[in-house]
């Protein structure tokens, strides 16, 4: 197969993984090749641009935009109102919960599974609806052998990543000791420990509700919420691009200051990194590392910054300026 054919298939999105690898190696092999790749991409996109623009309706989009910005102002108010309202009705709710749990006792056909991951390796659990949950070390999940028809309820503790099958009619409910997360079909990361929890959404959206105050917030893709007991829940943009590195083994840095690089490495490799001079933290690193040993990554960083050197004693690494 010649290279134009490969590029053409890639642009049409009909190429296979193997073909993409061949093409990628060819493109990055030389500047000449990159130069040959560029115009074909350019002509491909430029040729369809005008016609494609017609497919998008900017007026409708602006109307939606106006609706969202006016809703946002109201939503923040609602959370506060709900939180105070909850305190008044909590007594009534306790009775309801008591009733609900006694009802569950009579339903004997369904058994409950509890799985805990005691290993360092990530453990993958497939649920009855073929949703998947990835358990980090020390995480735990409980789920029924069969979900009831109204909702899919699971209980987790620790750090997990959920990849939920879409089913509009059967909401997926994740409870942890601190929060409850309601989803329709999405992928998100939950990290829960002693009275605090954080949720980061990789795809889709979820509703996170605090078990203590019933305050809630809707999180969309690439947003996160950090919750601690009796505080309001606020959604923020997730700036932690490596939040899934525990599961994927991939660390990505994109013009990332070493301060963040080091803290991501510390988390991934369970080590601690110190510097002799705080200025080192502001150096910038770009690169992707997949399933490397800690030592390999440290070597790469030292090579990228000729003015830096490091020493390692057990799990503690210290970086210093060479001139010192």
């Amino acid at each position: 197969m010649n290279i134009t054919e490969l590029i053409s298939k890639y642009l049409q999105k009909t190429s296979t993984v193997e073909e993409n690898i061949v093409l990628m190696e060819w493109v990055i092999n030389s500047e000449e090749n990159t130069k040959e790749f560029a115009p074909i991409c350019r002509y491909w996109y430029a040729s369809g641009r005008k016609q494609e623009e017609k497919k998008f309706n900017s007026h409708t989009a602006f109307a939606k935009f106006k609706k969202i910005i006016s809703n946002e102002n109201q939503q923040t108010k609602k959370i506060h109102v709900l939180a105070s309202y909850w305190k008044q009705i909590s007594a009534v709710a306790a009775v309801v919960i008591l009733f609900a749990s006694s009802f569950l006792l009579f339903n004997k056909n369904i058994t409950s599974h509890t799985i805990a991951n005691t290993n360092q390796a990530v453990l993958e659990v497939v649920l009855p609806d073929s949703s998947m949950v990835f358990l980090h070390q020390n995480a735990q999940i409980s789920y029924p052998s069969k979900f009831n028809s109204k909702s899919r309820d699971i209980h987790v503790q620790g750090h997990v990543f959920c990849d939920v099958q879409t089913n509009q009619n059967q909401p997926f409910l994740v409870t942890t000791p601190t929060i409850t997360i309601q989803v329709l079909g999405t992928k998100f990361d939950v990290k829960e420990s002693k009275n605090t929890a954080s949720v980061i959404v990789a795809e889709g959206s979820v509703k996170v509700t605090s078990n203590a105050t019933q305050a809630h917030v809707i999180l969309n893709e690439n947003e996160r919420a950090d919750i601690s007991v009796d505080e309001d829940i606020v959604a923020t943009i997730n700036s932690d691009i490596n939040f899934l590195s525990w599961k994927t083994g991939i660390l990505t840095f994109n013009r990332t200051p070493l301060l963040t690089v080091f803290s991501d490495i510390e988390r991934q490799y369970n080590c601690s990194i110190i510097v002799s001079d705080k200025d080192i933290y502001s150096e910038i690193l770009t690169g992707t590392y997949q399933n490397h040993e800690l030592e390999e990554i440290l070597e790469v960083i030292a090579a990228a910054f000729p003015n830096l050197s490091y020493t390692q004693v057990n799990n503690t690494i210290s970086f210093q300026n060479k001139t010192q």
Binding site: F37, Y45, A202, E203, I250
Partner: peptide, 25 residues
């Protein structure tokens, strides 16, 4: 994110997209 979650090990595709993104004027 899409690739990570789909467990689609096509790192080459992401790399190409990144290179390509400079050419999509």
């Amino acid at each position: 994110h899409q690739k990570i979650v789909l467990q689609y090990k096509d790192a080459a595709w992401i790399k190409l997209k990144e290179i390509e993104s400079d050419f999509i004027n």
